[in-house]
Design a protein around this nucleic acid. Sequence first.
DNA 1: AAATCGGGGCA
DNA 2: TGCCCAGATTT
Length: 362
Amino acid sequence: MSNSMFISIPVLFNREAFQNDLIYWYNERKRDLPWRENQDPYRIWVSEIMLQQTQVDTVIPYFEQFMNRYPTVYDLAEANQQEVLKSWEGLGYYSRARNLHEAVREVVESYDGKVPGDKKELKKLKGIGSYTQGAILSIAFDQPEPAVDGNVMRVMSRVLQIEEDIAKPKTKKLFEDVVANVMSEEDPSSFNQGLMELGALICKPKNPQCQICPVQKHCAAFGQGIQAELPIKTKAKKQKKEAYFALVMIDPAGHYFIQKRPEEGLLANLWEFPLFSQAEFDQYALLNWFEFEYNVKLNVKSNNGQVKHIFSHVIWEIDIVVAELTSGEIPNIKGHWINQEDLKTYPFPNVQKKLMKQLLIN
DNA sequence: AAATCGGGGCA
DNA sequence: TGCCCAGATTT
């Protein structure tokens, strides 16, 4: 017995009419987006990964460049991770790139290079969760599987006046049951994309355009005049602040020292000018320790500036310390000494690019 | 269930 | 500023 037994779908809700109105509107008004050119499952897959928590306009140039560089699963499978991260540079959530890369290699190894059209096999691939699974199955394979994202929860919470907290994991499952029971079996692709397109263009978080909404007559929230109160969502906690020193070292030949971040955690496997927490040492103690640890001498230049960077869950406040290496050397295993031109060839997170821009070395 | 994981758009 | 975005994974 499914959970849908306990979902309150209003008696007057006309499922078929809702499907028809939504799908008709979608096919009339859908945006001309690069991943809508065809149904190539690999293409759909890449687009869905890039679109996770990322707006359409941001994704478009990255998608074009990525598909141009890696037209097939084989092209992506053969690339190395640093190259893939460079293609992802600036897009954020870099585990998406690492997982996609790994999953594509798995498709080449185990599925003869063909993206599986099977629910369980898709879900096994790194980076494919319930939403992406449903999106690929419905859009690339025309299978009636729900694809519930933030748009869909917002739209359906209003249409069916569902007042569960969409910040809670359990609520997503509720909506997946709802959509499974309400969606079109004939055109699941247009239905799912229609819900998301409606969320992006009409049924927006603030000031929903109910006057021109194609499913207005099906919407319980509009009927009650409470569309602005839905969906219900509890607030996220405020970010904690962390203070760092960024040590920008220049050797006598004019090279810069950069290092690769750890392979797990925030900004994994990207590059940086070395960061040191200010919670442990002040600038004087840090430099003292550093010179002793590596047996080098540093000549710190004044007026180095600061960089502030906001992530989802933490805020970095960085004091930049520019220093000339006047004697000794840093072991190559700790990082790379590179010239200014080669800064372009390594994948850096935006916080580091911001720092470079401030120093006029980008 | 809660925390982690980027970056940008918008009122 | 705070909230949201075609979420997944780890703890």
